[in-house]
Simulated scan of single mutants.
Amino acid sequence: MQQPEGFIVSEKEDYVCLLRKSLYGLKQSPRQWYKRFDSFMTSHDFKRSSLDSCVYFKKNSDGSFVYLLLYVDDMLIAAKDKGEVRKVKAQLSKRFETKDLGPAKKILGMEILRDRKASKLYLSQKGYIEKVLCRFNIQSAKPVSTTLAAHFRLSSALSPQSDDEIEYMSHVPYSSAVGSLMYAMVCSRPDLSYAVSAVSRYMANLDKEHWKAVQWILRYLRGTTDVCLQFGRTKDRVIGYVDADFARDLDRRRSLTGYVFTIGGCAISWKTTLQTTVALSTTEAEYMAITEACKEVIWLKGLFSELNEDLQISTVFCDSQSAIFLTKDQMFHERTKHIDVRYHFVRDIIARGDIVVSKISTHKNPIDMMTKSLPITKFEHCLDLVGVHC
């Protein structure tokens, strides 16, 4: 540690400052702010979710609920009665310096659009995506129809070999572009999952081909800025879709796991990731993917139960009959003894009846768009299945 510039005491240069108060911008500031806010919320009869520490809820005497979602210092408050919302706002303004932005229209780069007549709510990132396109000078480029074309076969073997290539790639804003794409994917664009997963593996060792792939994704966004998630009133339960692409990673031959969960036909949770171990067959890859999806189901069921919604039994659809059979087979035999024990816990969950794993036709499984490159017609069909609309 060093004394700040302009405040150096002569002959005491080795002295340091004693921090009396946590200041904005220091490493401990977020923790101190959260502790203060958490203490305030619990003192006003709010409960913190045990499954998501940034979700607070309170049950009123009439049985209704008030929800507050926190992201650093941005908040969303939801309740059936507007009076309850105003009450929470008044309590917050007494303790903190707040700014009331009225009905939620935008938060964290996500635009919230409502069609009250049709009882629809749309979640879009059009403004954020347009800023990203301008930042990387793609706003006038020719758009493409898929997130990543089939001719991109990315691997570490494409890394630059000469000093000139390394120097050239050091000035390419690859990490910044991938980070911008990743934020869009996490918030409202499940269609970007596979492409972002592919390009994000080469942050430290990239070549011109990797950069071309990122530019292709940006060109896809150029033509799909209006794409959004569409939510409506529904009594449908959570439905999950899961799939795996065997040995998709060309470097280590690991398989790719993809899953998405929907309510009323619209995506609420999704993920594409490389599996941590190498699968020896397609069945094993699908089996491990089902396990990862079931872990997400457990989290969703817990969160819904805390928010006063009974999720009952969830259904996870998979297009591999052999993997489904493996989840229900409690027998020990040579074909499964080498699979990591942590992947077998799904058998106990299914045996208890908490989750149902069912067969679905490959043509009706939207996860294909999250594990591989697809032709335009199939890609657009997958988008419709998870509620991603223009």
Rank of each mutant, 00 (worst) to 15 (best):
Q32H: 14
Y71V: 01
K59M: 14
N60R: 08
S50P: 04
Y67H: 06
R36M: 10
L68W: 07
Y24N: 00
S50Y: 10
L51E: 12
S39H: 09
V55M: 10
F65V: 05
F65R: 10
T42D: 03
P30L: 02
R31C: 08
K35R: 15
Q32C: 13
Q32Y: 06
K21L: 15
Q32L: 09
W33L: 00
K58I: 03
D52Y: 12
K47P: 08
S39N: 12
L18R: 15
Q28Y: 13
S49A: 05
D38E: 13
L69G: 04
L26V: 07
T42M: 08
F37H: 02
D38T: 10
F40M: 02
F57P: 07
K27N: 05
S29N: 02
N60Y: 15
L19C: 15
K58H: 05
D62A: 05
S64D: 09
Y67A: 05
G63E: 06
D38K: 14
F40V: 01
F46K: 05
F40S: 10
Q28W: 07
R36P: 01
M41C: 11
D45W: 10
K21A: 09
F37W: 05
N60T: 14
L19D: 07
L68M: 08
L70F: 00
K58N: 01
D38C: 06
L19P: 00
S49L: 00
V55T: 08
K35L: 15
V55Q: 00
C54A: 08
S22R: 03
G63S: 01
S64G: 09
V55P: 09
F65E: 09
Y67L: 14
C54T: 12
L68Q: 11
R31E: 10
V55R: 06
V55C: 09
F57G: 02
F46V: 10
R48P: 02
Q32I: 11
S22L: 05
K35M: 13
Y24W: 02
L23F: 04
L70N: 09
R48I: 13
F40A: 04
Q32R: 08
H44N: 14
L26C: 07
